[in-house]
Design a protein around this nucleic acid. Structure first.
Length: 138
DNA sequence: GCCAACGTTGGC
DNA sequence: GCCAACGTTGGC
């Protein structure tokens, strides 16, 4: 199973809001980038991702699960882009900050480091395990 | 709030 | 189809 990372500015959509959305989850809409779209299209129900707070916080704060695969984003008038649905699984006991990620030897190739502007990113199995451990989960 | 990086748009 | 101009993102 693949792993992912979803970025959100807390002022727009925060982890607390994601948690409040509960099992029903949310539509991860608003993606308008073709590389991000490609990642969304590759996602399968049951796959897990990191929830990352950009700009304010700058940390991986929780885990989410894909609960509905790619379908059209009704906020996109052009019809070119789509979205998936996500639900919160659990917070990280210790949020993993961008500074810690940049400082970790095993995470130098993380997309968060190499292409920080991409809003939906793939995460390798090794990166996933390392960030989980840094966040206090096994 | 600045600005670098990057994606997109539109004129040619 | 190239590329300059522009807008947006996101770290600092």
């Amino acid at each position: 199973m693949a792993h992912w990372l979803f970025k959100s500015e807390p002022a727009t959509w925060s982890w607390d809001q994601q948690v409040a959305a509960g099992a029903v989850g949310t539509h991860w809409n608003g993606v308008r980038n073709h590389l991000a779209k490609k990642h969304l299209m590759a996602m399968q129900v049951g796959e897990h991702g990191f929830f990352y707070h950009s700009n304010e916080g700058k940390a991986v704060v929780g885990l989410v699960e894909v609960i509905r695969p790619y379908y059209p984003d009704d906020t996109d008038a052009t019809g070119r882009f789509g979205m998936v649905d996500l639900r919160a699984i659990r917070p990280l006991p210790r949020p993993v900050g961008l500074d810690a990620i940049k400082a970790a030897p095993g995470l130098a190739d993380m997309v968060l480091v190499t292409n920080s502007r991409l809003s939906v990113q793939p995460v390798s199995a090794a990166e996933w395990a390392l960030v989980l451990a840094m966040g206090g989960l096994d």
